[in-house]
Design a protein around this nucleic acid. Sequence first.
DNA 1: TCCTCTTGGAGAGTGCCACTATCCAATGGT
DNA 2: ACCATTGGATAGTGGCACTCTCCAAGAGGA
Lengths: 213, 213
Amino acid sequence: MRLSELSEKSGVKTATIKYYLREGLLRPGHRVSATQAEYDESHLRRLRLVRALIQVGRLPVATAREVLSHVDDESLGRTIRLGAALWSLPHGPDPDEEAPETAAAREEVERLLDRLGWATSQELGSLSPAHRALVSSVATLIRLGYPCDVEYLAEQARLMHQVAVQDLDMMETYPTEAEQVETAVASAVLYEPLLMSLRRMAQEEESARRYGI
Amino acid sequence: MRLSELSEKSGVKTATIKYYLREGLLRPGHRVSATQAEYDESHLRRLRLVRALIQVGRLPVATAREVLSHVDDESLGRTIRLGAALWSLPHGPDPDEEAPETAAAREEVERLLDRLGWATSQELGSLSPAHRALVSSVATLIRLGYPCDVEYLAEQARLMHQVAVQDLDMMETYPTEAEQVETAVASAVLYEPLLMSLRRMAQEEESARRYGI
DNA sequence: TCCTCTTGGAGAGTGCCACTATCCAATGGT
DNA sequence: ACCATTGGATAGTGGCACTCTCCAAGAGGA
């Protein structure tokens, strides 16, 4: 199909598709002549993924490019490929090492992982962006004076672990490695807002049960 | 304290504080003379909350102002005040009514709520921003061809309900209504990245258990 | 008192970033 | 032959969160 057709099917303006091509988020179509190129279903699928990453996941274009490059990198083993893709996703700001709360937060996270028995996370420590993001979040909460004691966090973490188990189960239903990696990325980016919507609806539901409408 | 002192204690530049004052995110200080104003702890606390909303929660300034106005509105009852504050938080894009997937998504969500027995959410229907955001998320997943069958969603929703129960329990530990509302907002905005960090760490942990490092 | 420094306030400017409008030469369809 | 369309390159746009610059009115030290 032509660029304009790709545009129609995806609902993305041709100018924007050209921009994505320029930015390397989309592979160039197969050049048929000097003035025309042919695009196929894989381009359409990738374009939709790009839109999802950028619009739903709010990824900056440069970050989306990096994530996609890992998704595409067939030379890596699955674990590395998965890790590379997920670790290049945005995770919020890094902890501010200047702030005194950061040290306290780090200790708190340490205690949390200890209690949970998450040995891997402890070993990876601050290598993992998720770990750093967690420290940063906890530091912010401490700074603002909101409680986040280990007991509470541990309970939430156990629930998140159950979520993660389901995520991985779902990922495993895909046969090929490429699809699994893509699913993992989609899961990280697209299911996040979905889960948060569910959380807020659950809050509304529970609030109505407790206090009435 | 003076504006410059407020700036030092909060780590926010004076120019930025002035900007927040202009935008109505921060109440003006108590004018001591024509050229000086006095700020107190409440300003510092509010400033930190503003920074958290904008930097951690990525709220646009205009949205932050709206949220804060509800937090401050003493004339509302708790339930309404809470609802107003939470409903003005960002929830992702509204569903695209043009797209055919949206109708399917709406049905899917309907079935989900039915299975969960969340009567309130069903009644509120598309009034609730969280509900609309969920439809939008599900529509995106359908469009991209990712699975999100009711069974899977229901399981995740039940987990999120457990999260919500803890959220509300924690909110109830605060004595005053103002604090409860502020905590609810903070919970919605600040605990989201925290929970998502926990989810990704749990994914790493579970992934390591299944496939090794 | 006088001189300098700082303050709060207001408007214009900056930098970033995701697009988007404009051109252009080379087709392709009729 | 003729003209709309295509892919490609370049420059421009709009939104937004700051940030710079200026100004008049005190504050503060010698």
